[in-house]
Design a protein around this nucleic acid. Structure first.
Lengths: 220, 220
DNA sequence: TGAGCTTTACTGGTATGGAAGTATGGTATA
DNA sequence: TATACCATACTTCCATACCAGTAAAGCTCA
């Protein structure tokens, strides 16, 4: 029963910055200034400052006392850690879904959306649908809360994807998604686990390439 | 090359409160007052306020504008979610460790510590050793960063354990740990996975009992 | 007596000024 | 020319004052 109350100004500023970072509008290493942002949104420094603190708690910014606040670089360690956790968790999702055979039309629908986004060259739309595809599997496994926790961990991965999806082959991603869905529909737990692990290991090859292409954006 | 600089005052206040919450010194639902805490630590409201914001970002406090700040109740959803993630991730740890056969003396050492704490009735010591046991497995699997991410998720679980460990049978926990270690030493991946899953599913029976015993401390 | 309004004492939210620390560019000196 | 020093212009951090919203007590009036 959360009251339908307007978020505080500081919270709104945080949400705005958060989206900007994840969408890649604010690139890694960008300097943020309390004064500048405050002027942009016509507020005092204090709420902006609190937004920075929240952003730092998200692992997306770094506040260096008396020096400045910067958009954090993409931590390869954080990406690899999140990837490992996703593989472990989602493979458990897959086994569970394959065993219970729930309704999977939501996943199938996203697959068609992804094909449409691919031919249309709509990269942000593709990424969002990709997220919804995996989320649908979490919901099919009846683990909505787990997906919420994963969302936080995925933040770093999402930043990476907004860089990499412009480069990498989206049709391969679609094929991997299809393999997962097919195995789930067949109720083959082993095949489903194998498919999702293969899919999520894809990033292990993409990450080093992205880091080599944009060394300034990465750390670790 | 992180500079060896003293943390800001606000950060210190946050760390202090964080430990208090996890140790159970600050119970769920406790009201926090910016003014009171500020007076206690001889500071102005501002750094205390920022500590509250960080605490809320950790999911340990709830800031209700114009109403008050409260230590968050233990979210059963969050506990169950963290438990699910731990089971998935740590079972992957177990399989990996069983396959590579690294040095496991760190885990064995913690097991003896736990026996000593059990007979001495040292509950906090037992819990800390329990954490180190699991952490040692993560390190043996060469996944230190993953363990750091788990630490954040485990926060809610740790609060629960400080309540439940006073009640539940610690010798059972020790036996389960021993089963894990034995399987790992034998290099039996299936048995190790089975043992760690069984161990982590123990909480599924403890949580409802704790929630029934202390309904005021829980939510969801 | 009791329902409804008003007052009042709180809460956190925001604005602003100054303190403390850091980086930078200029200047004096060897 | 190179180097050490120092003034200066930033940055975030903290203190203080004020604003706005909440809730509960007390009052008014039917």
């Amino acid at each position: 029963m959360i009251p339908i109350r307007a978020a505080t100004t500081a919270q709104q500023v945080h949400d705005w910055l958060y989206r900007c970072v994840l969408r890649g509008d604010l690139l890694p290493g960008t300097r943020l200034s309390e004064i500048e942002i405050a002027a942009q949104v016509n507020l005092s420094r204090q709420p902006v400052r609190e937004a920075f603190i929240r952003l730092a708690a998200d692992g997306l910014a770094e506040v260096l006392p008396q020096r400045g606040t910067y958009i954090g670089r993409i931590s390869m360690r954080a990406v690899l850690s999140a990837r490992f956790i996703r593989e472990a968790v989602e493979s458990d999702f897959a086994r569970h879904v394959a065993g219970t055979r729930p309704d999977l039309t939501a996943m199938a629908d996203e697959l068609t959306v992804q094909e449409r986004c691919d031919v249309a060259g709509d990269v942000p739309g593709f990424i969002e649908s990709d997220d919804r595809f995996h989320r649908a599997m979490a919901l099919a496994a009846d683990q909505a809360a787990v997906w919420q926790d994963l969302e936080r961990l995925k933040a770093q991965m999402n930043r990476l994807r907004h860089l990499s999806m412009r480069v990498f082959d989206r049709s391969q991603t679609i094929a991997q998604h299809r393999a997962v869905l097919t195995a789930l529909q067949a109720g083959d737990a082993d095949a489903a686990e194998d498919a999702i692990r293969t899919h999520l290991r894809q990033m292990l090859t993409e990450l080093p390439q992205m880091a080599a292409a944009h060394p300034d954006y990465f750390t670790d």
